[in-house]
């Protein structure tokens, strides 16, 4: 079904259309929420909150052709609100897993269960090592595929700044992956660096 038509039906109060819209967009919204908060349960709760917010603001989406930009904007605002609230709460005193090797379990964590691909897990792990702005750039541009002009409008920054930040963020991510010992040169893909470099 056409996205514009679907959105119009939702705005008219068609509950079936809303269900289809939720099913269609839930993966994207969950991915955005997870990218911002980095925790599976928190991301699911946040994604629900985003959908509730979206539902009550459907009639404010005037330009139905730009629905995805609008959805991204709402999701981003909800995520930032959530992070702000989380900052206001006292931090949890978690022990880093790396410091407690005895506690490491062979049973996969919910995150490992959720994100099947080890490559994607590695990228998520590397994303957590980046600065907030770099992580957001990767999320919006490279993962969600938002055009640079749209990101500039969303973040209210000049296009040139967005371009340079995007490039820097990609290099930071690549460096984080190399530092984590993963990527094409990691244990899963030994020798591929040399091969690709030679080609």
């Amino acid at each position: 079904m056409d996205q514009i038509e679907l959105l119009k039906r939702c705005q008219e109060g068609d509950e079936l259309a809303w269900e289809v819209l939720v099913r269609r967009e839930q993966g994207r919204v969950c991915s955005i929420a997870y990218g911002y908060v980095g925790d599976r349960d928190e991301a699911l709760d946040l994604a629900q909150e985003i959908f509730v917010r979206l539902y009550h603001r459907l009639d404010t989406c005037r330009d139905t052709e730009k629905f995805h930009s609008w959805l991204l904007r709402i999701s981003r605002n909800a995520c930032l609100d959530h992070l702000r609230r989380r900052k206001a709460r006292p931090p949890r005193q978690d022990i880093p897993a790396d410091e407690m090797p005895a506690l490491k379990s062979a049973v996969p964590t919910p995150e490992e269960d959720w994100i099947q691909s080890s490559r994607q897990r590695l990228v998520h792990q590397a994303l957590r090592c980046l600065s907030e702005i770099s992580r957001e750039m990767i999320l919006l541009k490279d993962i969600q595929g938002l055009p640079l002009e749209e990101i500039a409008r969303l973040l209210d920054l000049p296009l040139g700044t967005i371009k340079s930040r995007s490039s820097r963020a990609r290099v930071e991510l690549a460096r984080a992956i190399v530092d984590l010992g993963g990527g094409p040169g990691g244990p899963e893909n030994p020798g591929s660096i040399g091969a690709e470099a030679a080609s």
């Binding site: 839930q26 993966g27 994207r28 969950c30 991915s31 997870y34 699911l44 994604a47 959720w114 994100i115 691909s117 490559r119 994607q120 990228v123 998520h124 990767i138 490279d142 993962i143 969600q144 595929g145 990609r170 290099v171 991510l173 690549a174 460096r175 992956i177 190399v178 990527g183 094409p184 040169g185 591929s192 660096i193 690709e196 470099a197």
Partner: peptide
């Protein structure tokens, strides 16, 4: 060179992460 290869490795991988099945 390692950075360059990792960047190339990331290019097709990142768009695949746009959706997560909840």
């Amino acid at each position: 060179r390692a950075l360059a290869v990792t960047l190339g490795w990331l290019e097709p991988l990142l768009p695949q992460m746009a959706e997560i099945d909840p």
